[in-house]
Nucleic acid binder design. Structure first.
Lengths: 465, 465
DNA sequence: GGGTATTTGTCCGTATGTATG
DNA sequence: TCATACATACGGACAAATACC
């Protein structure tokens, strides 16, 4: 590099690139730059000489044009020898192929089933033992009603990194399951608000609102997610949505509707959006969908998440992120709620996250589920005339539109006859509606990888496809 | 990653890399990206934002140049630590949530406080380790929504022995706290029933019923417990009572009223009695009070109990015993509720009970609390002209009628000035009523035995007694 | 514990738009 | 209009570090 310390003069009428060109050409001809030498990269030389890359480029181009130098694409510029006319062959691509085969058998396609083969039991046990051995005091104290601070800190950090959720440990409430947090939330929001829920949707929210004084309004869902446009005309105050991946339909709430939804929420004091981000950890296509909460600037989004899906169902830890105003009310009004999550589990999980094992586990599981998803789709595609995969390809399940003259009930029944369980979309609908085709929810996540092909084939067989 | 969902505008005259730079810089300064956080890799972020890696690189370079971020070759970019950044952010900075400080309260006489010095940690740890070491499969499976069978068996056995409760494992539902079980129960009983609660009473039940469509009727309490005689004239369907030891008043529901109550419940299809037996384990006087449930032959009593009091608060395990009819409905309608208790904790407790350690622990604690109770009363008796101990002598607290011209508010305030917390009876009342004397709830159970004398003396001192 | 696949920062050449004279 | 200089942004090749098995 220093070999090219030429004195460029900006005030000179000779252009910079030409001054540089002449200098380098001279250095080569004088033998001070041996044949085959790689010239400095354009960036390096430009930075070194405090000139633009393009100026260097022009210089190099001229040197190439005049035969002093050879430019090899994406590699560099080399001083030529006379014999030098050969080119270096491009590198070859690597081929990857890995699809390990395993065993096991199960046939329940319930969308809440998840993979349990890959839980990092060794690590978990290690932290469990370590906590039990070391901690005495922290188990004896009352504990904070929102949950252990160490864990909330880890979650806040994770949520920000992974989902862009703006929150601190103080904004988080832990609970032993989404249902329990929802109950607390509904209690917090009070008896006056009117709820809107997606239809079809996560029916648990409707069940929990069974005793609620006001009627629950269904919100229709299409390929762009919940039809939030009608909210302004409704009397709804609080909507429950699954924007990242609608349950069970699979559609993603469009950017348009997100903004509409947030604007709607922002324009009413009692309006809130409950964002259930239940399977956001598992997206397989490139495009990633930011959380609603991350787009919200008015403190109107209540964010819900869970570890039951990302770890194992026996770990009952979920969380909600409350906007500041609501959190204040929570701390004032719901103090009587002790945190419902085991303190031991909380500490184990905190450690698990702190050590980076949670992220590793997610990465690992993403691959696992992706393979399962791909395999599932791959097996269904050849039957396009009778099957259509509906919704976004992510999470733990897909929705199948089946066109083989069977009704949803038939499809469920036929599967059952072969010891398999599938679930009709209509089971998740509030207002029954006509579909041109019966739809089946196919949760592939819980089927062991090695069994998946067999399971799907058996399913298609039982449907005469 | 999604944390950096900034809205880049290509049409903006501000270059992409600069928009991104400003955004990230701001996130760091606002404390939303904690110190030490690894920024997303250039590739990942570039892909996520749909821009070139080099654009990200330019951004990162600028961040490095300005000292916000440290770049480690082939490892990643890391947000610098506080000390590294201090000089930059002198201007503005939102304080990040900090670990809440330990309360300066020396003695907290909250009635829910219990003794934590005598928890058999060694045994508990032993079972914990043993379970974690041995069990693999049982943690991976879905688990029963009522709770682990082994534990429910132990509880059924214990309840029969200790409280005469007639039940089998099948009649029990486990939950992470009474509040959570109550919520489920209310959901199960549906929106049509009318609730009656003791007044004063366990205010949590009232809070949980805040959103409930029907009004909650207060039931007066006297020295013989809740005045259940008025039930027939009311529209109440379900009553919540603490018959063994009224909370907080301390009275015991008389045999007369018990029969009246059971008869009332038996004579209406939707009528039920919720019996919260929250501290029945700890009676110090000879006579033991049988549970309502044990006297019921009509399947009208719902029995509630908890381990949070008999073990340590950090173990969140409570249970309810449902009559057959209700259990059937529970299994049909509330299937979506996964059991909210940690499976690990459930198994540890089951083992703990099975090995007889729970009974040993109860015996031990009964003595401890009895000593604390006796010591407390002993210290108060000399001041009978100004203090009167109200209610039955059992459980974790007593009610003090104070006659020193101070109001309840004063008494609380004076205690607080000496770093102590006591709680006014009025806080547990629904309908505010006149008492001839202010009453204070004095939970002695959580005060370490060695300090109890000092604590009580300090309290009396602060009240000028 | 060692080998391999993947991730990650680094560096490269390239293309386009703009301001200036 | 054209040459010059610069700024911005892109996609790809490479090797060290890391994760994974």
């Amino acid at each position: 590099m220093e070999m090219l310390s030429c004195n460029l003069n900006r005030d000179n009428e000779v252009p910079l690139y030409e001054q540089l060109y002449k200098f380098i050409k001279n250095e080569i001809l004088e033998g001070r730059i041996p044949y085959g030498t790689k010239l400095p990269s354009k960036r390096k030389l430009a930075e070194f000489l405090k000139i633009s890359q393009n100026t260097v480029e022009t210089t190099y181009d001229q040197l190439v044009a005049e035969g002093y130098v050879e430019g090899i694409a994406r590699k560099g510029y080399y001083v030529l020898t006379y014999e030098d006319l050969e080119y270096i062959q491009a590198a070859k691509r690597q081929q990857k192929s890995s699809m390990p085969k395993e065993r096991l058998i199960r046939y329940d396609f319930h969308p809440s089933r998840i993979d349990t083969e890959n839980f990092p039991f060794v690590k978990w046990r290690k932290y469990a033992k370590s906590f039990i051995d070391q901690e005495h005091q922290s188990l004896l104290l009352m504990g904070q009603s929102q949950g252990e601070y160490v864990l909330r800190e880890e979650i806040a950090n994770y949520l920000y990194q992974a989902r862009g959720v703006h929150c601190t440990a103080d904004d988080i409430v832990l609970g032993a399951g989404i249902e329990i947090l929802l109950q607390q939330l509904i209690l917090l929001l009070g008896p006056e608000v009117a709820y809107g829920v997606e239809d079809p949707g996560y029916h648990v929210i409707s069940s929990i609102l069974k005793n609620y004084p006001n009627e629950v309004c269904p919100i229709k869902v299409d390929d762009s997610g919940a039809q939030v446009g009608s909210l302004e005309q409704s009397k709804i105050d609080v909507v429950y949505v699954t924007p990242s991946h609608h349950f069970p339909y699979g559609s993603v709430l469009s950017a348009n509707r997100r903004i509409k939804l947030l604007n709607w929420a922002a324009s009413g004091e009692n309006r809130f959006v409950i964002e259930d981000d239940y399977d956001s950890e598992f997206r397989y296509s490139g495009k990633s969908i930011p959380s609603l909460q991350s787009m919200d600037h008015s403190g109107k989004v209540i964010y819900l998440g869970t570890f039951s899906k990302s770890l194992i169902p026996s770990i009952r830890i979920s969380y909600m992120v409350l906007p500041k105003g609501l959190m204040k009310r929570y701390q004032e009004e719901l103090t009587f709620f002790q945190c419902s999550v085991s303190r031991i589990d909380q500490h184990i999980l905190a450690q698990f996250m702190k050590q980076g094992d949670f992220e590793k586990h997610l990465n690992r599981m993403r691959k696992v589920y992706r393979r399962k998803m791909e395999k599932t789709v791959e097996l269904l595609v050849p039957h396009q005339e009778k099957l259509k995969v509906v919704g976004d390809i992510s999470g733990f399940h897909i929705v199948l539109e089946v066109n083989n003259t069977m009704s949803e009930k038939d499809l469920v029944e036929k599967a059952k006859n072969n010891d398999m369980r599938v679930y009709p979309l209509s089971a998740y609908a509030i207002e029954k509606q006509f579909h041109s085709q019966p739809r089946i929810i196919l949760g592939f996540a819980g089927i062991p990888e090695a069994e998946l092909e067999q399971a799907i084939k058996l399913l298609l067989e039982s449907w005469n496809i």
